[in-house]
Amino acid sequence: MWLFVYFDLPTETRKERKVASEFRKMLIKDGFTMFQFSIYLRFCPSMENTEVHARRVRKHLPEHGKVCLMKFTDRQFGMMELFYGQKPQRNDKPPQQLEIF
């Protein structure tokens, strides 16, 4: 599963910029990668793990602004078309899943 976090946070004042920056830092600390400036994504090996990370994001929601969580299967993510300019780019393959016994 892939968990996407889309957000649009206010950045008019110094305090708002700090809140937005702290939210981004929290996402990175939790293993998310920046896809676009206000879109972060994370690969999760299972639906249960996806929900764990979604709960963490919900726990750190800023007071103001909009945040959206979307879950995609690996197959849906693989069907995404990415373009930089007019050249299509290949999707990143999901990381290898490690099992610890």
Rank of each mutant, 00 (worst) to 15 (best):
residue 1 M to W: 00
residue 1 M to V: 02
residue 1 M to P: 02
residue 1 M to G: 03
residue 2 W to G: 00
residue 2 W to N: 05
residue 3 L to R: 02
residue 3 L to N: 05
residue 4 F to G: 01
residue 4 F to Q: 00
residue 4 F to E: 00
residue 4 F to C: 00
residue 5 V to E: 06
residue 5 V to Y: 07
residue 5 V to M: 09
residue 6 Y to W: 10
residue 6 Y to D: 12
residue 6 Y to R: 03
residue 6 Y to I: 10
residue 6 Y to K: 15
residue 7 F to L: 01
residue 7 F to C: 00
residue 8 D to G: 06
residue 9 L to Y: 04
residue 11 T to Y: 02
residue 12 E to P: 07
residue 13 T to C: 09
residue 13 T to D: 11
residue 15 K to C: 10
residue 15 K to P: 13
residue 15 K to A: 14
residue 16 E to Y: 09
residue 16 E to P: 12
residue 16 E to H: 15
residue 17 R to G: 04
residue 17 R to W: 01
residue 18 K to G: 07
residue 21 S to R: 12
residue 24 R to S: 04
residue 25 K to M: 08
residue 25 K to A: 14
residue 27 L to D: 11
residue 27 L to Q: 06
residue 28 I to F: 03
residue 28 I to Y: 03
residue 29 K to M: 13
residue 30 D to F: 08
residue 30 D to E: 14
residue 31 G to H: 01
residue 31 G to M: 01
residue 32 F to L: 03
residue 32 F to K: 01
residue 33 T to M: 08
residue 33 T to W: 12
residue 33 T to G: 12
residue 33 T to Q: 08
residue 34 M to W: 04
residue 35 F to P: 04
residue 35 F to I: 05
residue 35 F to S: 08
residue 37 F to C: 11
residue 37 F to E: 09
residue 37 F to Y: 13
residue 38 S to H: 15
residue 39 I to K: 10
residue 40 Y to P: 04
residue 40 Y to I: 07
residue 40 Y to N: 06
residue 41 L to G: 08
residue 41 L to K: 11
residue 42 R to Y: 00
residue 43 F to P: 08
residue 44 C to V: 09
residue 45 P to I: 02
residue 45 P to Q: 02
residue 45 P to T: 01
residue 45 P to W: 06
residue 45 P to N: 01
residue 46 S to P: 11
residue 46 S to A: 08
residue 47 M to K: 13
residue 48 E to S: 15
residue 49 N to I: 10
residue 49 N to L: 13
residue 49 N to S: 15
residue 51 E to V: 00
residue 52 V to L: 13
residue 52 V to E: 13
residue 54 A to T: 02
residue 55 R to V: 15
residue 55 R to W: 12
residue 56 R to V: 10
residue 57 V to E: 05
residue 57 V to D: 07
residue 58 R to C: 06
residue 58 R to T: 09
residue 59 K to A: 14
residue 59 K to S: 05
residue 63 E to L: 03
residue 63 E to T: 03
residue 64 H to C: 06
residue 64 H to D: 09
residue 65 G to E: 00
residue 65 G to I: 00
residue 66 K to D: 14
residue 66 K to H: 14
residue 66 K to V: 07
residue 67 V to N: 00
residue 67 V to Q: 01
residue 68 C to A: 14
residue 69 L to I: 03
residue 70 M to N: 13
residue 70 M to Q: 12
residue 71 K to D: 09
residue 72 F to I: 10
residue 72 F to A: 08
residue 72 F to N: 06
residue 73 T to A: 03
residue 75 R to K: 12
residue 76 Q to M: 08
residue 76 Q to V: 05
residue 76 Q to C: 07
residue 76 Q to T: 04
residue 76 Q to A: 10
residue 77 F to R: 00
residue 77 F to P: 02
residue 77 F to T: 01
residue 77 F to E: 04
residue 79 M to T: 14
residue 79 M to V: 10
residue 81 E to M: 14
residue 81 E to W: 15
residue 82 L to V: 05
residue 82 L to A: 11
residue 82 L to W: 05
residue 83 F to I: 03
residue 85 G to N: 03
residue 85 G to C: 06
residue 86 Q to G: 10
residue 86 Q to L: 10
residue 87 K to R: 14
residue 88 P to K: 05
residue 89 Q to M: 06
residue 91 N to I: 03
residue 93 K to Y: 02
residue 93 K to H: 04
residue 94 P to W: 01
residue 94 P to I: 12
residue 95 P to K: 13
residue 95 P to A: 11
residue 97 Q to I: 11
residue 98 L to Q: 07
residue 99 E to V: 09
residue 99 E to P: 09
residue 100 I to N: 13
residue 100 I to S: 08
residue 100 I to D: 14
residue 101 F to R: 08
